[in-house]
Design a protein around this nucleic acid. Structure first.
Lengths: 180, 180
DNA sequence: TAGAATTTTCAGAATAAAATGAAAACGTGA
DNA sequence: TCACGTTTTCATTTTATTCTGAAAATTCTA
């Protein structure tokens, strides 16, 4: 065995270890957000895969059941972060993740806006509306607080729109500006 | 009973209802994030309170136990969103929330950076480091992906810094610009 | 410093979320 | 249409999180 192939072997093992570290840590971080651990792990695995992966491979890599793998892959597809790939001559479905980080950011911005910001805006607008005509000091304070919160969440909503409409190049520019 | 005081009474009830709606919905929204329902509800209650509130009042308003109220108030204090108020002649502690929305945003930006962004950056830097010298195509792909993610999370970190250093007035300007 | 008021802790109970695995449904080629 | 490989569903189990309530610790007052 040549020294080069020895290197290859240890490098292969080290890469596998690094990737496993990423998958596992990313899963832990995900659950600190509202994201379920398995979903985050599957996403991490697919983001760092060099080729599309089947449900069976996910099950094996993460040591999870078929139902779990299936549900979470479908959830990632619903988010728009993963897509199905059909390979000719193969009956199984393969999955691959979007790898472009800015594309991922845009997708997440769009989805979080839809799932989190918009419902919050609804609640706030409702509260503003309900307390609009009230006369007491307390009611006026409440109305003011609700209006301020609404204004802020509305701002967040616009930011999400801007981000999700942002072209890759412009994002890089903006990043450079901010980081410089 | 004058018509004015009748109005007051129904207005009072309507305000109470609106506030309860806000507290309950805000709690539900919070749990969609990584935030526990009770903590979000306490925060909502304190944000819309016209005066500081005791643990016993929280317990009564939200129908929760002392332990629960205590733990979550302390957690809000740890986030920097709530502070203790001592009233002369009172042995009980009172709590009040920061009400300025931009101040809240700055605090949340600072804390989320510390709790979520920085650990993520740690993981990514570790993965970049570990795969830096590897030779195989797969390893190079992995390293590239990790570098791109690191760059992005680093950007998010800078944004968080900017926001948490932002003066109130500047935030309003920026908002106007973006909303216009 | 006793003792009363208040805060804090934490073991156990209750609840919510996630995972399993097997059955059902689906789709395809013979 | 049948048989087989695959995907999907979902009742049940497991795990994780949150909550309770009472005891312990702390703080204040007289």
């Amino acid at each position: 065995m040549s020294s080069e192939s020895k290197l290859s072997i240890s490098e292969h093992a080290a890469l596998k270890a690094a990737r496993e570290e990423f998958v596992s840590q990313w899963g832990a971080l995900g659950s600190q957000w509202g994201i379920n651990r398995t979903m985050a792990q599957i996403h991490a695995l697919l983001m760092t895969a060099h080729q599309p992966i089947t449900t069976d491979e996910l099950m094996e890599e993460l040591e999870i059941s078929r139902g779990n793998a299936h549900t979470n892959v479908k959830e990632l597809i619903a988010w728009g972060l993963v897509r199905t790939v059909v390979k000719r001559g193969e009956r199984k479905e393969f999955f691959e993740a979007e790898k472009d980080v800015w594309e991922i950011a845009r997708t997440v911005a769009r989805e979080r806006k839809r799932r989190e910001i918009e419902p919050a805006l609804g609640v706030l607008r409702d509260c503003v509306e309900k307390s609009r005509e009230m006369q007491s000091t307390e009611a006026k304070e409440f109305n003011k607080q609700m209006r301020q919160l609404e204004e802020f969440v509305s701002f967040a909503s616009k930011v999400a729109d801007q981000v999700s409409a942002m072209k890759h190049g412009f994002a890089v520019q903006l990043a450079a500006k901010l980081l410089g």
